[in-house]
Design a protein around this nucleic acid. Structure first.
Lengths: 208, 208
DNA sequence: CATATAAGTTAGTGTTCACTCACTAACTGG
DNA sequence: CCAGTTAGTGAGTGAACACTAACTTATATG
């Protein structure tokens, strides 16, 4: 018995480690043994803090949700035109994915969902909140005259969410082979240019 | 020993069954036992046809690639304006996903990729071919005057691929809770309207 | 119709996994 | 400083898994 830590500290440590390992192994190959070894306790020790592995997943899900909500709130604090706020929000999301690359894999893991419906619902709700935030910003953008009036905010938001997902998937398949934020900013520019109000004088200068 | 089939027939049967089961269980939870039971042979029988489980996955990957290429070729046969051909291509892809819903889960499974780099590369290449087909159509659309001249075909294609991915993910998370083709057609309309050439007289009539 | 071949079976093996239980020692409050 | 609490350990268990070896028998062919 080396070091000993209060339960809350250890719990957080386990969740954090699991999140990192889920990226290396894939969420469904994450074992209590692997987590324990990296945390520096025995495998059985994990079960003092999480009575079932399921409980660990639930804690991870909660942690992810917390991280996201925090970053979203931070990104939307500044007072800016709607399109700039969308860019901030997406940039924040991409920064989070870059810092915690297991997130997309966990969110979209068929395995986790197939045996754990609560988890599936939690992630669906989380994605729903992300979508709603974007849709709200699009709606504001229309009011501000930045986006065209005949734009459906929900559909526009779906395209933006799809952009992020597509990017995350490609980033993972290419083994982080490009700059997530740079690529994201460029694609988002293109996406938003398609939403722009043609009668607006707020014309965005275009790259040559 | 009930029925007995020539190896090629049986192999195809196993691949097909595995594809269906991968959807129900998640790709990483697919076991040889489950496949065998549903095919109607014993677990050991699987290994007569695929010496390692890995080999089964490779066969599945090849099958998926074959399916996709076939559908893409079919969708692009007709002579139509570029935007219509993009719509056909995406519709074909969504029809395939609807018929074989395991495909996205397999393509994007972190688990499969983490232990099987050849598979990861194969899927990456497949996605690359899909992207290239779309980019080519976008390029043609620009030449035909359907899309704006300052549009980057590669970036535009990425947004379209993202649209399909986002749709597939949401379809899976919502347990097929909406019509994939209908929703896809609507979002693609929106996406393509953002690419349209503003100086074109080929004006698309808009929904009220 | 005899026979070779190949499809399939039975009965295992070693490994990995989540999870349990009895125990121990580090911390904490009185 | 001592007693109760609690983080962590050691040693195991049974279930699930991919894979193997030795066999049996259906089928296609000469």
């Amino acid at each position: 018995m080396r070091t000993r830590k209060p339960a809350e500290t250890r719990k957080a440590e386990i969740v954090d480690t699991a999140l990192r390992l889920a990226d290396e192994l894939g969420p469904d190959r994450l074992t209590t043994e692997a987590v324990a070894r990296r945390v520096g306790i025995t495998q059985a020790g994990i079960f003092r803090h999480f009575p079932k592995k399921q409980a660990l997943w639930e804690a991870i899900a909660g942690h992810i949700a917390g991280l996201m909500e925090k970053r979203w709130a931070g990104a939307l604090a500044a007072r800016q035109p709607a399109d700039a706020r969308i860019r901030s929000l997406i940039a924040a999301q991409l920064r989070l994915i870059r810092a915690t690359p297991a997130i997309p894999a966990i969110l979209f893991s068929r395995e986790l969902h197939s045996e754990n419906d609560a988890l599936r619902r939690a992630f669906l709700a989380l994605l729903g909140r992300f979508h709603r935030r974007i849709a709200t910003l699009v709606r504001q953008g229309i009011e501000e005259g930045v986006f065209r009036r005949n734009l459906d905010p929900d559909d526009a938001a779906m395209l933006i969410v799809g952009l992020v997902q597509g990017l995350a998937v490609r980033w993972s398949l290419t083994r982080r082979g490009f700059d997530l934020l740079e690529e994201g900013a460029r694609l988002l520019d293109l996406q938003l240019s398609g939403f722009a109000n043609p009668e607006s004088e707020h014309r965005r200068e275009e790259r040559s």
